[in-house]
Nucleic acid binder design. Structure first.
Lengths: 152, 152
DNA sequence: ATAAAATGTTAACCGAAGTTAACAAACAAG
DNA sequence: CTTGTTTGTTAACTTCGGTTAACATTTTAT
C-alpha cells in the first residue's frame, strides 16, 4: 500500500499534467509546499513502486496505476465537496478544505453511499440516471457535473 | 499543535480511564497495537507538552488540556457515526470505521454544520431544541443521544 | 556560442514514530 | 522474604518524509 505522502505526490502530478501539460519538479514542489530535493526523493520512491516513469533530469510521467489512484482520489474529492458545499452549506473555500481532507480517508463503500445520498437528496435532475439509483451511475453523474472543480 | 499520533494516544488514554478507571502502559499498547516501548516514548513526549502527568513507573493521568482534546474528538466521532450509520445507512461496523477516520480530519465548523444537518434531517424529535436550531445545542443533543457509542 | 538563470540532483543531516532486546521495578504467592 | 511473573523503561536501531547547501544540468538570452 502506498503512503499518504506519496499519494499526495501522485495526485499533485496528475493535476499538474492536466493543467500544464507536463510534470516538473519545481511545480510539484510549489504545489506541495516542499523543497525540490524532497520532490526528487519522492520521485525515486515512486519509481521503485512502479508509479512513475522517471530518469534524472528526464520527463516525468505517471504510470497507469498511478493515474488510476489519482483519478479515484479526485472523484472522491468532488463527492465530498458536494456534501460540504451543497448539503451542509459551508462556504466554498471551507468546503474545499474539508473535501481535501475527508476524501483521503473515506472508503470506497462510504463514498458510494454518500454519492447515492447526494444524488437523490440534491436532486441533480439534469442527470440521466435520476430515478435509476445505481451507485456507479451516481458517481459518474457527480463527476460529469463537477468537472470545473478539478481545475482549481 | 499536537501531532496526529500523539492525539491518538490521548484519546486512547481517555477511553481507558473511563473503561478501566486507570491508565496503564500495557493497555495503551494493546489498544494502539504498538509496543510498550513506543508507549513509554510517547508518554514522555506528552509530558513535555504538558498533556500528561507521569513519572517512570508511576500513575498516568491526563491534564485538563488533554482531557478537552479527547472529549472533543469523541464528540466528533458520534456526529460522524450518525452520518454514516443513520443517514447513509452503512452497516454499523463500517460506520464506526469511517467515523474513526473522518472525525480526525474535520474542522470544527464542518462538524457544526454536520451536526445541524443531522439534527434536522434525522428529526431527533425527543430533543428539546428540535426547532431552535443552534449549533451548540445540536451537538449537545447528539452527544446525549449517543452515549452508548463511547463504551465501544 | 557562451554566460547567466532556472531547474534538478545529491549528500549529509534532522525529528517523529515505530521496532527489538535487555534490563529494572512492582507485585503476588508460596 | 525471596522468587517468578507481569509490567514498564532504556538503548540502539529503522524507516519515512522532510530539510539545507553544494553541485550538475538544461535552458534562455544576448
Amino acid at each position: 500500500m502506498i503512503s499518504k505522502a506519496l499519494e499526495e505526490y501522485v495526485k499533485t502530478m496528475y493535476v499538474l499534467k492536466k493543467q500544464l501539460g507536463e510534470i516538473r519538479v519545481t511545480d510539484i514542489a510549489e504545489k506541495m509546499n516542499c523543497s525540490k530535493a524532497s520532490v526528487t526523493k519522492s520521485l525515486n520512491s515512486l519509481k521503485e513502486k512502479g508509479l512513475v516513469n522517471y530518469e534524472a533530469y528526464g520527463k516525468i510521467t505517471l504510470t497507469k496505476e498511478a493515474d488510476d489512484i489519482a483519478q479515484k482520489a479526485l472523484e472522491a474529492y468532488d463527492i465530498v465537496y458536494l456534501l460540504f458545499n451543497k448539503l451542509l452549506n459551508l462556504p466554498d473555500d471551507k468546503a474545499k478544505d474539508e473535501a481535501e481532507k475527508v476524501k483521503k480517508v473515506l472508503s470506497d463503500e462510504a463514498l458510494n453511499s454518500l454519492a447515492k445520498y447526494l444524488h437523490t437528496t440534491l436532486g441533480l435532475v439534469n442527470l440521466d440516471c435520476r430515478y435509476d439509483i445505481n451507485q456507479k451511475k451516481c458517481r459518474d453523474c457527480i463527476k460529469r457535473n463537477t468537472v470545473k472543480q478539478n481545475n482549481e
